[in-house]
Computed example of a mutant assay.
Amino acid sequence: MNAVRKFIVAMLVVLGLGIVFFIGYFVKSNANLKHDARNNTECKTNERVFDYADKLSDSEEETLRGEIAELEDKVGMDFVVVTMDQYTDLSEYDADAVSYDIESNTKDIAEKICDYYRFGWEEWPAGTYLDGRDASTSVVIVANWQENDGYVYLCTAGKAKKRISDSKATSITEYGGKILRSDTLGAFERMMSRTETAMKSSTGGLKFLSPFICFLVSLGAAIAFCIVNLSKKAGKDTTTASTYSDGNAKELDRRDIFIRKEVTSVTIQSSSGDSGGSGGGGGHGGGGSHF
Score class of each variant (00 low, 15 high):
75 V>S: 02
27 V>Y: 11
67 E>C: 00
71 L>A: 15
76 G>T: 06
45 T>F: 02
71 L>H: 09
57 S>I: 07
57 S>N: 08
43 C>V: 11
52 Y>S: 10
45 T>A: 06
53 A>E: 01
41 T>S: 13
51 D>C: 07
75 V>A: 01
59 S>H: 00
44 K>N: 10
43 C>L: 10
49 V>I: 04
64 L>M: 05
75 V>C: 03
34 K>N: 13
20 V>E: 10
64 L>W: 00
37 A>S: 15
49 V>T: 01
51 D>F: 00
51 D>M: 05
23 I>R: 06
41 T>A: 14
46 N>E: 14
69 A>E: 14
22 F>G: 05
66 G>S: 07
74 K>N: 13
67 E>L: 07
72 E>N: 05
63 T>H: 03
49 V>W: 00
57 S>Q: 04
71 L>R: 08
76 G>Q: 06
73 D>Y: 11
56 L>T: 00
66 G>A: 07
54 D>L: 09
54 D>Q: 15
19 I>E: 14
75 V>R: 01
22 F>L: 10
63 T>W: 00
63 T>C: 05
74 K>L: 14
47 E>N: 11
74 K>C: 07
33 L>D: 09
55 K>Q: 10
40 N>A: 06
31 A>F: 14
71 L>S: 12
61 E>V: 12
21 F>N: 09
22 F>M: 14
22 F>S: 12
61 E>H: 02
39 N>C: 07
49 V>K: 00
49 V>L: 01
69 A>P: 08
32 N>S: 10
69 A>D: 15
54 D>T: 13
22 F>D: 12
39 N>A: 09
68 I>H: 02
55 K>H: 02
35 H>V: 03
49 V>M: 00
30 N>S: 13
48 R>C: 03
47 E>Y: 01
51 D>E: 05
76 G>F: 04
61 E>Y: 01
57 S>K: 10
57 S>C: 09
55 K>S: 07
55 K>M: 08
19 I>N: 09
40 N>Y: 05
51 D>H: 02
31 A>T: 08
72 E>W: 03
18 G>T: 04
43 C>I: 12
57 S>P: 05
29 S>E: 13
73 D>G: 06
71 L>P: 07
47 E>W: 01
23 I>V: 15
53 A>C: 04
40 N>G: 09
24 G>K: 08
76 G>D: 08
34 K>C: 08
54 D>A: 12
62 E>Y: 01
37 A>K: 15
30 N>I: 05
60 E>F: 00
45 T>W: 02
73 D>R: 14
36 D>F: 08
59 S>C: 02
39 N>I: 10
24 G>F: 10
35 H>P: 05
64 L>N: 00
25 Y>G: 06
53 A>D: 09
25 Y>F: 13
53 A>K: 03
54 D>M: 09
21 F>A: 09
29 S>R: 15
72 E>M: 11
62 E>F: 01
43 C>G: 04
29 S>T: 14
68 I>L: 06
65 R>D: 03
45 T>V: 02
18 G>I: 05
62 E>D: 13
28 K>S: 15
33 L>N: 02
40 N>E: 04
40 N>K: 06
41 T>M: 13
34 K>S: 14
76 G>A: 08
